[in-house]
Design a protein around this nucleic acid. Structure first.
Length: 268
DNA sequence: ACGAGCGCCTGTCGGC
DNA sequence: TGCCGACAGGCGCTCG
């Protein structure tokens, strides 16, 4: 489920849930070893035990849980999800990591496809250091996005998915933002003008803002509770009418990811 | 150094 | 009904 709005929704719910901030992690159970990226398994379970949750933040698509000595970073990749529940609840299929708290509650990381990863590190820049700017960072301007797009001949769609260009945008929100900005996904980065870069940044922000306001998008069995999937303009709407002009939405693979666009509103 | 392609995984869906 | 391929909110690695 994981793009910026879905991760932001989860982070906000964790932050607002009583019994998370200030809670002490008493033990950890790793149910799928490869979930833990760093450090080694034994050290991970040993070092996280006894640490207190100080803050819950987001950087790009990473959940950043600040602990008393380390930071716990969680990337949900394609199918990750997080639950907070009583310790008496049964462990669920595809649960990969359980963090037990002292008060009979726990945090469960569930991840069907096993792509998700968890890092425990005192220095988050070792994990998120190469990420591009946050879309809502006020220091990010249309001029800055323009210069980042212009130095590449890759498709603008591919550039939006590159987390070192801008952090947090994934396949849904890139398609939606490009439609809002009336840009064809296969435009090369160096073809995008300054004016187009400015409207693209505005479109990214509007799209992400709507996504957050709707608690993200819920598709298939992955991630519940969002509503943005009912408001897609182009994503997974191949053959259906463009909400602006009625032309049939087309699908095309760009950079090995399916891309959806209106051939009339987004000419090449 | 950059970009394309594959691998990692499980589940669902549509076509035959 | 069952099987098989295509496809799915992501990203790291390798190779040319």
């Amino acid at each position: 489920m994981p793009e910026l709005p879905e991760v932001e929704t989860i982070v906000r719910s964790l932050r607002n849930k009583p019994g998370i901030l200030g809670r002490r992690i008493t033990s950890a159970q790793v149910l799928w070893a490869r979930t833990i990226a760093v450090p080694e398994l034994d050290e991970f379970t040993q070092r996280i035990s006894g640490q207190t949750i100080v803050a819950v933040e987001r950087r790009g698509k990473f959940i950043v849980i600040r602990l008393s000595a380390d930071a716990l970073l969680i990337h949900l990749r394609m199918s990750g999800d997080i639950r907070v529940e009583s310790e008496v609840e049964p462990v669920q299929k595809h649960d990969r990591l359980l963090l037990n708290f002292g008060n009979c509650t726990r945090l469960a990381f569930n991840d069907t496809r096993k792509f998700g990863r968890v890092w425990l590190t005192p220095d988050i820049t070792t994990v998120v250091g190469e990420l591009g700017p946050e879309p809502f960072d006020f220091e990010l301007t249309g001029d800055m996005l323009f210069s980042r797009l212009q130095r590449s001949s890759r498709c603008v769609k591919t550039l939006l998915l590159d987390q070192s260009v801008i952090a947090g945008v994934g396949n849904i929100y890139s398609d939606e933002a490009l439609h809002r900005a009336r840009l064809h996904p296969a435009l090369s980065g160096k073809q995008v003008t300054l004016e187009q870069s400015k409207s693209l940044l505005a479109a990214i922000r509007e799209t992400l803002t709507e996504g957050i306001a709707r608690n993200g998008a819920s598709i298939d069995w992955v991630y519940r509770g969002g509503d943005f999937q009912n408001h897609f303009r182009v994503y997974q709407r191949t053959g259906k009418p463009c909400p602006v002009c009625g032309t049939k939405i087309e699908r095309r693979v760009i950079g090995q990811r399916s891309s959806h666009f209106c051939p009339h509103c987004q000419p090449l």
